[in-house]
Design a protein around this nucleic acid. Structure first.
Lengths: 186, 186
DNA sequence: TCCTTAAACTAAGCTTATTAGTCATAACAT
DNA sequence: ATGTTATGACTAATAAGCTTAGTTTAAGGA
């Protein structure tokens, strides 16, 4: 029927991810992305609804990778051991994807079902640990929110350069993780 | 010597703040700000170096107001009582300034001395509580980072709509504050 | 071969940020 | 009073970004 597209969804997300990683979030534009794909800017509108859509799709792909990283970290461990690994994997992912990480927090401009589904899925290892430690439904939710808040707050402030004092940031993180682990005893 | 400016720094920041609060961060542009000030767009460059500079200055003003709110909350209280008030004042400020709050986290695009000074000043009530509770130098820094991480992480995720489940967000916050307060006993 | 269909293209609009260069004016020194 | 001058406001213009409209092209099926 139609001619084969030179732009596939995978290639689009890959190139957009590469631009953000290499040059920063602000350098992802319709123009730079079209160039990277070897196509003129308006042609992108055959594949996405706009630049916000591209960012959303990159965010979805990134939060999926984050979930994979957390799952890998928790694999084969349990309890405090697993939670410790999850915390450190979370921070490591943010550090290695400093420009992409902000896209994982939430879908800007209102709900997006696909993003939300993938974001929820990324939290499975965390909920698995809590469930295995005997946390009931609602309590698991509150505790997971606390842990996510601490982790996201820490890494986003760290990436933003909000920790200005000379004290070791690694040590601060270790101390915070220790505190998070103690939640499992309660 | 020169003629009196129709655009003062105060008015500029006030109007920019009003636009962000009323219409959202994305609506703050050189054009909308110039209109609000009754001036043509290029005239703004006699007062600021660009739109990023405007955002930075609004952020500085906002983080100062945040510090005032925290100071007011802690006034006349001490220990757990003061920290409880600080936590709730922090969240309330973010909720009442949802569009402005992201500007308080850090100066984008590298250090800005003025912003950093005001941001540091905003943390004084927190450090005061910790000092009064006997926290030593480095330990106070690590603990303050933990508390800031939890608070910032929670409110930024809440504002971003990252807590999708039906469980009460207020209850999650209360539980988190309870844990934060328990830090003072350690 | 010809038609359908989707994806590419060109052209063009509008918005935003910014720079260059000009003009107006109010405060100050004389 | 008057002229100087610094400053801020203006017009004009450019470049970049996002998007829409409308046209062309090419591959696969009839």
């Amino acid at each position: 029927m139609p001619r084969p597209p030179s732009v596939t969804e995978d290639r689009l997300i890959d190139e957009a991810t590469a631009i953000i990683t290499r040059d920063g979030l602000r350098e992802l534009t319709v123009g730079t992305l079209a160039d990277a794909l070897g196509v003129k800017a308006p042609s992108l509108y055959n594949h996405v609804s706009g630049i916000d859509d591209v960012r959303l799709q990159v965010g979805t792909a990134t939060v999926t990778r984050l979930g994979d990283a957390l799952t890998d970290a928790a694999m084969g461990r349990s309890g405090e051991d697993a939670l410790y690994a999850i915390c450190h994997a979370y921070r490591l992912f943010a550090q290695r994807n400093r420009e992409l990480y902000p896209l994982t927090v939430a879908s800007p401009a209102g709900r997006d079902d696909t993003f939300d589904r993938h974001a929820w899925r990324a939290l499975r290892p965390l909920y698995a640990v809590l469930a295995a430690c005997g946390f009931e439904e609602a309590d698991a939710v509150h505790t997971a929110r606390l842990i996510r808040s601490s982790l996201h707050g820490f890494v986003s402030m760290e990436l933003a350069g909000a920790f200005g004092l000379p004290e070791s940031v690694d040590e601060s993180f270790d101390q915070m993780v220790g505190w998070v682990l103690s939640l499992l005893d309660a």
